[in-house]
Nucleic acid binder design. Structure first.
Length: 640
RNA sequence: GCCGCCAUAGCUCAGUCGGUAGAGCGGCUGAUUUGUAAUCAGCAGGUCGGGAGUUCGAUCCUCUCUGGCGGCUCCA
């Protein structure tokens, strides 16, 4: 140990410094780092624990800076912004009772018990934030006694509850920002000037779980960046992303349709149907290579089937029901019961396993009205669904094959995906020991395959654990697409058996799996991902032929026929408008290839090729273009 | 389903401080036959989401239903 009153600080580069006890962490870091770097430090890590820069060092520690680039630093900025929102709301509506305001994956929110928030309140909150930022108010930490905390927040039952939940002996701290005091563990950025890039995105009411009598909470959501230009960049990206909304593009390109009298039930228009069929072909090719058989099972089953499957007790509120005489039928929300009944329809041998039954059938789910969202959340959908009946030692191989297929499918669309392993929920069927085993199997596979994943405890289906695939839409909203679910329950409930090599009867395990998820949701995300500029292989119209004048009609027709004969989807835009207008329209319609045909081309047997997104055109022989386009389509290239 | 907001022509939107409505794009017709992101002119198209109430009179105010949007919850 050093002199009395000196402490030793270890810094991230391995150097050590001796400083007077009580030196603020921020001061040590400012001395250590170049000024332009230290400027970006918003908090510190002391022995791995996040603290304020003003926090004083009173013992030997390791010290590291936190900036926005660090996950923890980012969270601190979001959380500080949440405080500022609470301050501004309480200034606007003094009786508002703040509850909590955590950072999230994409920003932050703060929940309040307060009358319903109005748009003008949000304007006032934004103004209040701007005032605080301009005033550069410090975040001042104060540690208080339990009694003082209770008296400070005597009017706020939520804060009193948090205080009562704090273990005896634990530090209780509050942060003061101007006149606003909030119960908070911290840490925070040094002052409100750090929040010049904070922005309120919206507000909404919340349903309070398990307490119908309680007043609903109001949530204000926002996001924060360290500087105003970074916020502006984010807002600009967001505006651009709105233009990629699949609902807008779907209407503009006449892909699909919704009508008021069929909420959540999509119509696929001719061009949208081509997208669906191309996806189906893509998936079907994989199924053929991987040993699947396709089946079709009934759309409706009597109640008793769902009682067997467990849907009646676990999923009935999401099912459409139909009465026939005194029997009640349910529209199938999933394909599993049908596949179970096929398996059970005769005796099965181990030689048949793995038995892979695929089914692309419309499913109906009575989703709550407020959750419907274009194609990404609908009430009628078709999944690229299959059920694999396997033995325990076949599980790993089957899932590895699926992981390969996932890689192929998503990279074809240049989509980035993540995995989530969901484990036993509160409401579940079966034996916890069997669950543990299934979860361990899945986790082992994920580990062995080297694919990054996260675990969500308690998020599994009622019949088994699952691996979900997530992708994001143009606004960064995450959507679940594929899912691989291990099921030890349905085979037991349906009494499935096969005769093993040992002559004994055994129960198969079922793997439910869908990879793209549903055509509907997957298309919604793909539309946004490519902003309606579909890869040529899936594009509803692949080629548009533009004859310069009427005298080129015959040549244009011949060219179109030639392309069609090779399976290319082609349209002709007759010379009712200028060539410039038709080129523009083709570009707006996102057609991959535009072929212009005039005197020169007709005479030479060539075409002028304009590839989507390119400002130039090139002249090629017809055969050359055809070979080029067919090759890119066959290889399912992303770009034309 | 819950909280808030919204609903005017096929689409995007303007408008009426209560006296039944306009534009651009798209559509149709005609002229133009065009060389790589918008040729010109004309025409058609709306019981202002449905119902009820207030009013001499409602697209406008009130209530309600339906649908949508942003979240919550849930999920492919």
């Amino acid at each position: 140990m050093g002199d009395v009153g000196q402490v030793e600080v270890r810094l991230p580069d391995g150097t050590q410094r001796r400083v007077p006890a009580g030196t603020p962490a921020g001061e040590v870091l400012r001395d250590w780092a170049p000024p332009e770097v230290a400027e970006g430090y918003l908090a510190a890590l002391v022995d791995g624990v996040p603290v304020d820069l003003s926090s004083r060092i009173d013992r030997d520690v390791s010290l590291a800076p936190l900036s926005f680039a660090d996950r923890a630093g980012r969270d601190i900025l979001q959380h500080s912004a949440a405080h500022l929102v609470a301050k501004a709301l309480v200034e606007t509506i003094p009786e508002a009772k703040p509850t909590h305001g955590p950072p999230t994956e994409d920003g932050f929110y703060y929940d309040f018990e307060v009358r319903p928030i109005l748009p003008e309140d949000i304007e006032a909150v934004r103004a209040g934030i701007a005032r605080s930022v301009a005033a550069r108010e410090p975040f001042v930490r104060r540690e208080v006694s339990r009694a003082e905390a209770e008296s400070l927040f005597a009017q706020n039952p939520h804060k009193l509850r948090y205080i009562s939940e704090t273990p005896a002996g634990a530090t209780i701290s509050v942060y003061e920002t101007g006149s606003f005091v909030d119960l908070c563990r911290g840490p925070h950025v040094p002052d409100t000037h750090w929040l010049e890039g904070a922005h309120v995105l919206g507000f909404s009411g919340l349903e309070r779980e398990g307490d119908a009598a309680a007043r609903p909470l109001q949530r204000i959501r926002g996001v924060a960046f360290p500087t105003r230009p970074e916020l502006d960049r984010f807002l600009k990206l967001r505006t651009e992303a709105e233009a990629r909304d699949h609902r807008t593009i779907g209407a503009r390109q006449e892909l699909f349709l919704f009508v008021d009298d069929a909420p959540g039930f999509p119509f696929f228009l001719p061009k949208g149907m081509i997208l669906v069929r191309e996806l189906e072909k893509f998936v079907t090719e994989h199924l053929a290579k991987s040993g699947y058989a396709e089946v079709r099972t009934p759309m409706l089953f009597a109640q008793s089937v769902y009682e067997t499957s467990g849907h009646w007790s676990h999923y009935r509120e999401n099912m459409f029901l139909s009465a026939e005489g005194d029997r009640l039928f349910g529209w199938k929300p999933m394909n599993c019961p049908g596949s179970m009944l096929i398996f059970r329809s005769r005796s099965r041998s181990y030689r048949e396993l793995p038995l892979r039954l695929a089914e692309f059938a419309p499913l109906h789910r009575l989703e709550a009205s407020g959750t419907l969202h274009g194609l990404t959340r609908v009430r009628e959908l078709v999944q690229d669904d299959a059920h694999l009946f396997v033995t325990e030692d076949q599980i790993e191989r089957e899932i590895l094959v699926l992981v390969d297929w996932i890689r192929e499918a998503f990279t074809t669309f240049r989509l980035e995906w993540t995995y989530e392993l969901s484990t036993r929920p509160a409401s579940f069927l079966g034996d916890p020991a069997v669950w543990d085993k299934a979860e361990a199997t899945l986790e082992k596979i994920l580990k062995d395959s080297g694919v990054p994943y996260r675990v969500s405890p308690g998020e599994g289906a009622f019949y088994g654990p699952k691996i979900d695939i997530h992708i994001r839409d143009s606004l960064g909203r995450p959507w679940q697409t594929g899912t691989i679910q291990l099921d030890y329950q349905l085979p037991a409930r349906f009494g499935l058996e096969y005769q093993g090599a040992d002559g004994q009867l055994h129960m198969p395990i079922v793997i439910h799996r869908t990879i793209l998820g549903s055509w509907e949701r997957f298309l919604g995300v793909v539309i946004e991902h490519c902003a309606g500029r579909f890869p040529p292989w899936i594009a509803p119209v692949q080629v548009r032929v533009l004859p310069i004048a009427d005298r080129h009609a015959e040549a244009a027709g011949g060219l179109a026929d030639e392309l069609r004969a090779s399976g290319i989807r082609v349209e002709i835009a007759a010379p009712e408008e200028s060539i410039a207008k038709r080129v523009r329209t083709a570009e707006v319609d996102r057609i991959p290839y535009v072929l212009v045909l005039g005197d020169k081309e007709a005479a030479e047997g060539t075409v002028s090729v304009r590839v989507r997104g390119s400002k130039e055109s090139t002249t090629r022989s017809r055969a050359e273009f055809l070979a080029y386009a067919l090759d890119r389509i066959r290889r399912r290239e992303f770009d034309p």
